[in-house]
Nucleic acid binder design. Sequence first.
DNA 1: CGCAGTTTTGATGGACCTCAAAGACCGTGG
DNA 2: CCACGGTCTTTGAGGTCCATCAAAACTGCG
Lengths: 250, 250
Amino acid sequence: MNTAIKDFTFNSRECGSCPIRHRAVCSKCEPDELDRLEEIKYYRTYEAGQPVLWAGDQMEFVASVVSGIATLSQTMEDGRTQMVGLLLPSDFIGRPGRDFAPFDVVAVSDLTVCCFRKKPFEELMGSTPSIGTRLLQMTLDELDSAREWMLVLGRKTAREKIASLLAILTRRDATLNQLTPTSGMTLDLPLTREAMADYLGLTLETVSRQISALKKAGIIVLEGKRHVIIPDFAILMAETGDDYDGGLLA
Amino acid sequence: MNTAIKDFTFNSRECGSCPIRHRAVCSKCEPDELDRLEEIKYYRTYEAGQPVLWAGDQMEFVASVVSGIATLSQTMEDGRTQMVGLLLPSDFIGRPGRDFAPFDVVAVSDLTVCCFRKKPFEELMGSTPSIGTRLLQMTLDELDSAREWMLVLGRKTAREKIASLLAILTRRDATLNQLTPTSGMTLDLPLTREAMADYLGLTLETVSRQISALKKAGIIVLEGKRHVIIPDFAILMAETGDDYDGGLLA
DNA sequence: CGCAGTTTTGATGGACCTCAAAGACCGTGG
DNA sequence: CCACGGTCTTTGAGGTCCATCAAAACTGCG
């Protein structure tokens, strides 16, 4: 089921120069532990739009996203789709102790992942506590995020949902670049209107309308379809419905 | 903020005779590891309706639910509430490595929890891999559950939501009693209509109406307000919108 | 240019929310 | 015993937000 294994393009195989070295599942490893990981790792790349895993597939590897973006989603028989996670650089794919993928994983941009065959990875986890500890941390963080998203899906209006999505994407962008989100931030939307709709539990038309409404209200400025300028982050936050303490973030 | 510490009522302090021994965070511990856990554990009880933790509270302990049910939920400034999890016997409360509670925890029935002070528990985790391994497993399972619930919240109709909730509660009941859900199952709803609404992202009126509709359709039979009989589990499953392979469960 | 994919905008309808009132259940006290 | 209040639940009437259906505008590309 795995397709599109392009030629290896990532510029270095050395863990030491890996861009996600300090945030990924391997971030707590000592040099000797890294060496052992390095022995079993390999890179894979996928083109935008291509599937990485289908729900139900046997997973013969776990992986870290090195660059690019993927979505984690679920589809019902009649086609209704719900995105359940956005996989950004340093995020982890797969889980030790389970053989089959619970959700679809699709590359939405060109994607590079750092793979470990599952069996060796599981064995290494047994002898390397720092991997398990880091994975537990990451999983707990993801669980909190998933639960926060449940509030968005269950209780927020369409407008609040859009504002929440923009705020989250802006924050992730900011933390990636070690900034605090303030005024004048810009954001390149990695998702189509349809993908946003699938993330927010809306239709693509409603997404489009609400983005237009936020634009008309001056809360965001659009340059083209995908490039968003946020004149005042606090005003955007006010539209999310969340209480906001003014600049601090988790 | 923690209130209602009733007198100790749990019938035995021995881990060996603990009803959740085989499913909780301690389920993989060896006898000597259990001994050390036993040294730092203590029980707490809460009456139905009482808060265990408020979001933002400092958490001085982590805990396992021994008996009773609690909810994990989030409330917006204007009062909109979303339940993000249901805590049943053997479920874990709190997380190592974080000081403040991210969500409200409220006892919905009389509740007994087995507490460990956070610091000693974290230290013990460092020296006892079986605890961390088990906690990782449990957290990964909860993450999958949370993501499955996102589909319910984002994409399902009110009727499908109610059916999904009934199916999940029935299954948990069944697995607790080591059965497979089949025909003629009964279920005591642990939640009020309002709590169900908060779980499903609906209003309590809509919950009530959809339950009446399922009753009228013969998919469920009510005895009183809280006792539900499910004549045919497969027919209930068909109402959830999920594909169902006929009797097998995860 | 012409075509396919994406996005915007409009018109309409329906699922669910809101507001309102009455019924069911339960414990308390007269 | 029944009246009484409180909580939970049901049911009804009307309104609204968002989905659905439809078509046009925009974008990139062979």
